[in-house]
Amino acid sequence: MAEQVALSRTQVCGILREELFQGDAFHQSDTHIFIIMGASGDLAKKKIYPTIWWLFRDGLLPENTFIVGYARSRLTVADIRKQSEPFFKATPEEKLKLEDFFARNSYVAGQYDDAASYQRLNSHMNALHLGSQANRLFYLALPPTVYEAVTKNIHESCMSQIGWNRIIVEKPFGRDLQSSDRLSNHISSLFREDQIYRIDHYLGKEMVQNLMVLRFANRIFGPIWNRDNIACVILTFKEPFGTEGRGGYFDEFGIIRDVMQNHLLQMLCLVAMEKPASTNSDDVRDEKVKVLKCISEVQANNVVLGQYVGNPDGEGEATKGYLDDPTVPRGSTTATFAAVVLYVENERWDGVPFILRCGKALNERKAEVRLQFHDVAGDIFHQQCKRNELVIRVQPNEAVYTKMMTKKPGMFFNPEESELDLTYGNRYKNVKLPDAYERLILDVFCGSQMHFVRSDELREAWRIFTPLLHQIELEKPKPIPYIYGSRGPTEADELMKRVGFQYEGTYKWVNP
């Protein structure tokens, strides 16, 4: 592979701008107003304001973009700056750019259920340069409990009458099928589907988006991507930290609602779906819905739930269990780990287990898709061969690698495990991989909904998990304890083995 010439960040961002501006969906010269509902909250200060700053800094926003914060707290732009700027990672050389960014910011205080507050917000936006005809993007960085009041008031008082209007809704989209349907029906009564952007930030990850290209742009994968060759698929999300004093919020939802029903299920769809007619948003989402419709409700015998306990040999936070978090209700049975087996009941995947695993306070930070292939028929190497695996590593250190057998150097035919490896950090030294939120917010500006969740996708996802969630809430089974920093409950490994996964433990990928 030829040595790549190092590029400056300015040059890299210039390439990104060229890609972005050559499309006809990006209205570079139009006025846009980006409204952050819930501007005083954690999500706004840690993710949304920093993301908008990065896009502005790199010249990736339309030229005439204004940012308006809205929340109940009586704040000023200076207050917003004070709480969000520490997350910007701005350099001293960017000081003038930073001043320009905050000059485009404003803030309006108001209630979430008060019509007069929204009329005041609308008047404020109209007073901005060309504000009355601007395109408006409303980001709901809010708890779902206020979605209905907020969307109703936005629709009645704050819509642009000339430009387009788009609304970005953060997960969780309800707690179960019934609450999700209620919320979807409410929002759909106010906005068209092409105006609604239900954001799952995992769909903005580079390697998640790469799944489609790997599958449908490489001839070698087509013939082997089926039940005849693939023994099982494992989708993993692991965090090495616990709730760390923020367990009160987590306890309301648990690990299945927080990660599995959305992030992991979306990745499953991209692995299992048929080739779409095109890369058009609805063509892709149509195929994802077909996959979900082929999955039956989760069966309790295919589920393992766990909850982390303190590690007596650990240090600091590792010595504390979930129930030691003062914000967690006493005696909570909320799971911090889950392993679930699903089956896609169609011709391509009949009988292939899709194993979804996620948890907190585990032994490493990792998100990946792992396809394990069947054993080689007619073994001539005296059971020395391990199964081939194709691994798409989402985070950290984005990579695609194939675990395969090669001859060990020497005189004899002794096979050993090795890999074919594409590590993004080595291959793409001159490429700026956008943060997931950067990519998705740019998608909203461009009107691309491919990486957002459609209402029928959402409904099918909740259909699969709601009976299990209701059973857990009714019966309150005690989750299996696992030690902070471990791989999780051993019962999860036993479940995976029972459905056909072979864990060798003899080879570990190392970032080159």
Rank of each mutant, 00 (worst) to 15 (best):
F56I: 10
Q178C: 13
R120T: 14
N64K: 13
M159T: 12
N226Y: 05
Y118V: 08
Q161K: 13
D181S: 09
D194Y: 08
A231Y: 04
Q22I: 14
V146H: 07
P50Y: 01
A44D: 00
I230L: 07
R192Q: 13
I199Y: 04
K46L: 15
T145M: 10
Y49Q: 05
K82Q: 11
S180A: 08
D200N: 00
G245S: 08
L177W: 07
H155L: 10
S8I: 12
I168T: 15
Y249A: 00
G59Y: 05
I230A: 03
Y118H: 09
C158S: 10
A25F: 08
F250S: 02
L235Q: 04
M207D: 01
R72K: 01
T65W: 10
L235R: 02
I36E: 01
T91A: 12
R219Q: 07
V68K: 05
G69T: 01
P92Q: 14
R81D: 06
S84K: 08
R198A: 02
N165P: 04
R257Q: 05
K47M: 06
F87L: 14
N229D: 07
I15E: 13
S123L: 09
A103Q: 10
Q178F: 13
V213D: 10
Q83F: 08
I80C: 06
M207L: 09
F250P: 00
S179R: 07
K205C: 00
D251R: 04
N153R: 13
I80M: 14
G247I: 07
R215I: 03
H129W: 08
R74Q: 14
I80A: 09
T91W: 12
K45G: 05
Q178N: 15
Y197L: 03
R246C: 00
L137I: 15
K152P: 04
A39I: 06
K46T: 06
R215N: 03
G69S: 07
Y139I: 03
V108I: 13
D200L: 04
E239Y: 02
W164G: 06
E63Q: 12
P50V: 07
G204V: 01
R136Y: 14
F101I: 02
W53N: 01
A149W: 09
F253D: 03
E156W: 11
S106P: 00
S180M: 05
N122I: 08
A39S: 05
F221D: 03
S84M: 14
Y112K: 03
G222K: 07
A116G: 10
G59A: 09
A44M: 04
M37I: 12
R246V: 01
A231P: 04
R219N: 09
T51W: 03
L177V: 13
G163L: 06
L177M: 13
I154E: 00
S84H: 13
Q83N: 07
V169W: 04
V233W: 02
G38H: 02
S160A: 11
I67M: 06
A115Y: 09
E193C: 02
I234N: 12
V150M: 06
E19A: 14
F102L: 09
K97C: 08
E93W: 06
L96V: 15
R215H: 03
Y70S: 08
M1R: 06
Q161T: 14
R74W: 15
P172A: 02
N64Y: 12
K205M: 03
L235N: 03
I168F: 12
N218D: 00
W54G: 10
A44V: 04
A141R: 00
L235T: 06
R215V: 02
N165H: 12
I36M: 03
M159S: 10
A127F: 15
A116F: 10
A71V: 01
D58G: 08
F21Q: 05
C158D: 13
T31V: 15
L177E: 12
F88P: 01
I162P: 06
V108Q: 11
Y202I: 02
L60Y: 08
M212Q: 04
G23V: 11
F88N: 14
Q209T: 14
T91V: 08
S40E: 00
P86I: 05
Y70E: 04
N226I: 04
N185D: 15
K171L: 00
T145C: 05
F88R: 05
E148C: 07
E99D: 09
E193I: 02
Y107C: 09
A103L: 08
N229R: 00
I33K: 04
A115Q: 15
I230R: 00
Q161N: 15
E193N: 00
W164L: 05
V233P: 02
M37D: 00
T145I: 04
L142R: 04
N135T: 08
V5E: 10
D114M: 08
G163P: 05
F66G: 04
S180H: 05
L98S: 09
K205H: 01
E252D: 13
N105L: 12
A44H: 00
N165L: 08
F173T: 04
L96T: 11
I256S: 06
L121A: 08
N218Y: 01
N64I: 05
K46D: 04
N153I: 09
D79L: 09
P223F: 04
T236W: 03
I255T: 06
R17W: 08
V150D: 00
E239S: 01
P240M: 09
A109Q: 06
S184D: 09
A217C: 11
T236D: 08
I162D: 14
I256F: 11
I234Q: 14
G247E: 09
K152V: 11
A90D: 06
M207H: 00
W225Q: 04
P143G: 02
Q22W: 11
N126Y: 09
G163F: 10
P62N: 10
A134L: 08
Q83M: 04
E244K: 06
L211M: 13
L96R: 08
I199N: 09
M159N: 13
L43V: 12
Q161H: 10
Y202M: 02
S132C: 14
N122T: 14
E156H: 13
V12W: 14
Y49T: 00
I80V: 15
F21H: 12
E85F: 06
H32P: 08
A149V: 11
V169E: 03
V150Y: 04
L140A: 14
G41Y: 01
G69Y: 00
Y118A: 14
Q161L: 13
C232G: 14
V108G: 02
K205D: 00
E170N: 01
D24W: 02
F216I: 00
Y70M: 08
L121N: 00
L142W: 02
W53I: 01
F241M: 06
F250M: 07
N165F: 08
Q195I: 06
L43Q: 01
P172V: 00
N185I: 14
E170R: 00
L98V: 12
R182T: 12
I168N: 05
D79R: 05
E148K: 15
G14K: 15
L128C: 12
L121D: 05
L96N: 11
R227S: 11
D181N: 09
E148T: 07
N135Q: 09
F237T: 12
S180L: 12
Y139G: 03
L214P: 00
C158Y: 10
T76P: 06
G163C: 13
A127Q: 15
D100M: 10
F138R: 01
I234C: 11
S117T: 11
R9M: 15
D113H: 08
A25E: 12
Q133R: 12
K95F: 09
T65E: 03
F101G: 01
V208K: 01
I162H: 09
P92E: 08
K89T: 07
P50M: 09
T243A: 05
G248W: 02
A127N: 08
H129T: 12
S106E: 11
E244C: 15
L190V: 07
E99K: 06
F237A: 07
I256V: 11
V68T: 04
K47I: 00
D42Y: 00
K46F: 03
L121F: 06
G222Q: 11
A6R: 15
I80D: 02
V233L: 05
R192T: 14
Q83I: 08
K238L: 01
G14Q: 13
Y197R: 00
Q209Y: 04
D194R: 10
L211H: 06
G222V: 11
G38Q: 01
G38R: 00
E19W: 06
R192H: 13
E85R: 05
I220Q: 04
N226D: 06
F221L: 14
V108T: 04
I33S: 09
G38K: 00
G204K: 00
F26P: 08
F56E: 02
L55V: 04
F34W: 15
S132F: 08
I33V: 10
E19M: 11
I187E: 02
I162Y: 09
V146G: 10
D100F: 12
G204M: 05
I36P: 01
L183T: 10
R17Q: 13
N229M: 06
R136S: 09
L60E: 09
G14S: 15
Q195V: 06
